[in-house]
Amino acid sequence: MDSWSLRYLRQDLSKLLELINEYQIGDFSQLYDLLGKVDSLDGLEYELSNVVFYIDKRIAGTLPNELNKYQIFFENTIIVEKTFDPKKDFLKSYKFELNIDSYISTENGDGKCYKNCWHLDKHIESSEPKYTHPTYHFHFGGEYLNGLDTGDISIFSNPRLPHPPMDFFLGFHFIISNFYSSKEYPFVKELKENYEYQVIIKRAQDRLWKPYFKAFDSTNTHQDFTINKIFPLYLS
């Protein structure tokens, strides 16, 4: 719980801004604004919009192929529960969005703007979802693309989202969970509640997923499934 203190937010944000200032890779004025009002916050809560990153070299795998200049607008909101319960998610409200403008830049200036966006959602349980909804999940698209023609949208090969390996059984399970609406296709719920189907999927999970997720166990001795290999963002 101590890591959520305002003292650490002030300390870490100040140091981060000091470190990235020399690189001039974006507009981080909102971070400086946040740093200036940390002491007036009611706990570690903040709302950031349009923290901008600039990229002026082509990103491999992006379509159209000619795109070579990008602006990434980062929005992030965190609001925490007033009372900490170690058995529950501490985040009361959450927003994480990457809205991306891409251009074909030439000596004569920037051409047409192509848009792309990703958001990391927190699923709020209300009614039963039509498709599988992990509690936190990356999702392509969002309001940033509303009303656009397909010719106005850029396609990225990133981000590469970590996911455990799947065989036919787990692949089948993944497809019916993500692409068949449980409201329109009753077989999805019926099959997933079938005991024999669950045995098949659980056995496949034992084969492929248990070794994968044990990478997060401090006693793990697997040489290939290590936390640094399956989740390189994690700094151990």
Rank of each mutant, 00 (worst) to 15 (best):
I25F: 04
G26A: 03
D27F: 04
F28K: 03
F28A: 00
Y32M: 02
D33C: 01
D33S: 11
D33T: 12
D33Y: 03
D33M: 03
L34N: 10
G36M: 02
G36Q: 11
V38N: 07
V38H: 04
D39H: 09
D39E: 15
S40W: 01
S40G: 08
S40A: 11
S40H: 06
L41P: 13
L41Y: 04
D42E: 13
D42K: 14
D42F: 05
G43L: 05
E45G: 13
E45R: 14
E45N: 15
Y46E: 00
Y46S: 10
Y46G: 01
E47S: 15
L48Y: 11
V52T: 12
V52A: 07
V52F: 02
F53A: 08
F53T: 11
I55A: 08
I55N: 12
I55H: 10
D56V: 00
D56C: 04
I59K: 08
I59V: 14
I59N: 04
G61V: 08
T62L: 06
P64D: 11
N65G: 10
N65E: 15
N68P: 09
N68H: 03
N68E: 08
N68R: 12
Q71S: 10
Q71T: 05
F74G: 02
E75D: 15
E75Q: 13
E75L: 05
E75P: 07
T77Y: 09
T77M: 05
I79S: 11
I79E: 14
E81W: 09
T83V: 15
F84R: 11
F84C: 03
P86H: 09
P86E: 13
K88L: 11
K88T: 04
K88Q: 13
D89I: 08
F90M: 07
L91W: 09
S93H: 12
S93Y: 11
F96L: 12
F96A: 13
E97F: 10
L98M: 13
L98T: 01
N99M: 06
N99S: 11
I100D: 07
D101N: 15
D101G: 03
D101S: 04
S102T: 07
S102D: 08
I104R: 05
I104Q: 10
S105P: 06
S105I: 01
S105Y: 10
T106I: 05
T106D: 06
E107Q: 13
N108I: 00
G109A: 08
G111V: 06
C113Y: 00
C113F: 00
Y114K: 10
N116R: 12
N116W: 09
H119R: 12
H119M: 10
H119P: 00
K122V: 07
H123W: 14
I124L: 09
I124E: 12
E125F: 06
E125M: 11
S126M: 02
S126A: 10
S127Q: 08
S127Y: 06
S127W: 06
K130M: 08
K130S: 12
Y131I: 07
Y131A: 01
T132E: 04
H133K: 14
P134M: 02
T135Q: 12
F140V: 03
F140M: 06
F140A: 02
G141N: 02
G142Q: 02
G142W: 09
G142L: 03
E143H: 00
E143D: 14
Y144S: 03
G147F: 01
G147R: 06
L148K: 13
D149E: 07
T150W: 02
T150N: 14
T150M: 09
T150K: 14
G151R: 03
G151H: 09
G151M: 00
D152R: 03
D152G: 01
